Amino acid sequence: MAFWRNVSPRGAASDLWHELAQPRPHRWLFVLTAALTTVAVFSVMWREGAKGPPHPPKITYIESFAAGRTDAEIIAGNIAATRLAREREAEEKRRAEDVRQMYKTLGRMSGMDVDAIEKKARADEAAEAAAKEARKAGTTSSSVPENRR
């Protein structure tokens, strides 16, 4: 708040006039450049044309369930949805395995030791899972020495 006590419009205008009145070689060029820059920035903002916050979206409610469904119909629907989700998950696993096999084939054709790479990846996954379990149990398996913690 102390800053605003030392600021006055009259003092600012007086300081500006004092600086402009001093003979400097390019003072009017600087004034013109500052004015044009200000006008350019404000004209860009003016062309944006924003007029407040956007209007909220119109919501259309769609009822996908019959109002008078019985418990048996609800259970049957849940079973069907679960079955469909499991089928999709199995299909996704099959596709992932196909992609994995394609990459293995490509790796073998490129001369890579695919089996060693897979073995290392499984070891890394097992170590990560063990570390995650250790964190859950509250212990830490850190390689940082005690005096560095």
Rank of each mutant, 00 (worst) to 15 (best):
M1G: 11
M1S: 11
A2K: 13
F3M: 06
W4C: 12
W4N: 10
R5E: 03
N6H: 07
P9M: 01
R10C: 05
R10G: 03
A12Q: 02
A12K: 01
A12G: 00
A13C: 02
W17K: 14
E19G: 04
L20D: 02
L20V: 00
A21Q: 06
A21F: 05
Q22F: 06
W28D: 09
F30S: 01
F30K: 02
V31I: 01
L32C: 10
T33R: 11
A34I: 06
A34Y: 09
A35N: 04
T37I: 12
V39R: 12
V39G: 05
A40T: 02
V44G: 05
M45S: 09
W46D: 10
R47S: 14
E48M: 15
G49L: 07
P53Y: 12
P54A: 03
H55C: 14
H55A: 11
H55P: 04
K58N: 08
K58A: 15
T60D: 13
I62P: 10
S64A: 12
A66Q: 13
G68H: 15
G68P: 05
G68D: 09
T70Y: 05
A72D: 08
E73D: 04
I74H: 02
A80C: 06
A80F: 06
A81N: 09
A81R: 08
R83D: 10
R83F: 14
L84H: 10
L84T: 07
L84K: 09
R86K: 14
R88S: 14
A90E: 07
A90F: 05
E91I: 04
K93E: 06
R95G: 03
R95P: 00
E97A: 14
E97I: 06
D98C: 08
D98L: 13
D98S: 05
Y103N: 10
K104H: 15
T105I: 10
L106R: 10
G111V: 01
G111E: 01
D113R: 04
D113N: 06
D113G: 03
V114R: 03
A116R: 07
R122N: 13
R122F: 15
A123V: 04
E125I: 11
E125V: 07
E125N: 09
A127K: 13
E128A: 15
A129V: 06
A130C: 03
A131P: 00
E133V: 04
E133N: 09
R135D: 08
A137S: 08
A137N: 08
T139C: 15
T139R: 13
T140V: 14
T140M: 11
T140L: 14
S142P: 01
S143A: 13
V144P: 04
P145I: 02
E146L: 15
N147T: 07
R148E: 09
